[in-house]
Amino acid sequence: MPLSRFAADTFGVVTICLVAILILLGLLCILYSFYFRSRIRNQAFVQLSYFSGPWIIRITFILFSIWWGLGELIRLTVLRRALHLKWQETVCKYYIVSNLGFAEPCLFLTLVFLLRAPLQKMENGIMSEKWNGKTAGFILLYCLPVLVLQLFVILIGPQLDKNKNSALPHYFTSTAAASSMTRDHDIALCTYPLLSTVFLGLFAIILTSYLFWLGRQILKLVINKGLQKRVYTLIFSVSGFLPLRVLFLGLSVLSKPEHFMFEALAFLAFLALVCCSSVCICMLVYYPVADCLALGNLQDIEARRRYTDDRNDTMSLIANQSHLEDNVEENAGSSPGRYSDASTKRGSISFRTFGKDGTSTGTFVELSLFSPSRDATPPGSPPLLGWPMRSPRQDIGL
């Protein structure tokens, strides 16, 4: 079925909208990460600094996603119609090297390092000041083999196409196909070389196998069911969407670029990686930052609650002391003989007890203020009634 102009433009517009949503989500998460970083520095949440350790690599993951999304835009014929046919073919070659050779491998390598970070030691892991720099270097180093293979396809592929004795069909190395879709000028349709897809598939197999092993190691450390669901979602989304993308790209060589089936398979491959990138951004950037901010808010609430409790305890202690002084003066005025100088020198006072609601219980209690001496308590006299004084912290149960 030949591809109509309307169908091609529809796929292009939907692709532009999805890339715009991905970029907007990524920029919002970047701003969210900077806000979380500022909260830690301003409020001195030292306990949460562990969770902000990989913040540079998280932002790098988002930047790779945005890079890949912009690369998908330049592949569209809607945005390349104004260029000359030769420049359109050059853009298609750049797309293969940029997305399949650099952006996608770096994207998933960054994901692997972010998942591997909690399994490392504290001094060598994300708490180390050099962890972000070392991780970025390793990502670029491990991406280099895939990039070299894609460059081989782009540079050597045209030479193989010109060689009539080559055993490889043209779709193994072809990056663009010329098609006269309008009477005004020719348009080069970007294609996916089968060799590039094979190299990406080998990378996907190695990465998926390692992610399954890494997920098992992480699940042994996770005791929260919510975090377990996130790890399962992350692992199965990557191990599901990445092979699907490779499968759709491989099937695209079975149809011509002018046909509807080719554009549909290319769009499905794009949609698989858009969904995978969005899930990874939410699981690796947004939710960890949101959880840490919620934990910081709980610490603020707990600190305010303790301050309020301490203030209430202080006010209650002052009120009890004022009640005590008022009753001592009242009882001393009504019973001057009982509260004489001799009784005061003895080191004890008597006061009326009050309940929690402030009402009098009608009971007089004699409280010893000092340790009784031999002069104050003659031998053979009955012991003083009452209870030893306790500190206010004992009264509130601390």
Rank of each mutant, 00 (worst) to 15 (best):
S4V: 06
R5M: 13
A7G: 06
A8T: 10
T15H: 02
T15E: 06
L18R: 00
L18F: 09
L25N: 12
L28Q: 11
C29Q: 14
L31A: 15
Y35W: 12
R37Q: 14
S38W: 09
S38G: 01
I40W: 03
A44N: 14
A44Q: 15
Y50S: 14
Y50W: 15
I59C: 11
L63T: 05
W68Y: 06
L79E: 00
R81H: 09
K86W: 11
E89Q: 12
E89G: 05
E89R: 03
V91W: 00
I96S: 05
L100R: 00
L107W: 03
L111D: 00
P118G: 07
L119M: 10
G133P: 07
K134F: 15
A136N: 09
G137C: 12
F138G: 03
F138H: 13
Y142I: 09
L149C: 10
D161E: 15
N165R: 10
N165G: 08
S174K: 08
A188I: 03
P193Q: 02
V198M: 13
L200G: 05
L202N: 07
I206M: 11
L207D: 06
G215H: 03
R216C: 15
Q217W: 06
V222F: 07
L234R: 02
L234E: 04
L242M: 10
V246A: 07
L249E: 07
G250V: 00
L251W: 05
P257W: 01
E258G: 07
H259Q: 14
E263Q: 12
E263S: 12
L265S: 01
A266E: 11
A269Q: 01
V274D: 02
I281D: 01
Y287Q: 13
P288M: 05
D291P: 03
G296W: 04
N297L: 14
D300W: 01
E302R: 13
A303E: 12
D313C: 02
Q321L: 13
N331I: 11
A332Y: 04
S334R: 13
S335W: 12
D341K: 12
K345F: 09
R346P: 04
R346T: 06
F351P: 04
F354Q: 06
G355A: 14
K356I: 13
G358E: 04
F364T: 14
E366W: 01
E366V: 13
S373Q: 05
P379I: 02
P383L: 07
W387K: 15
M389P: 12
D395I: 15
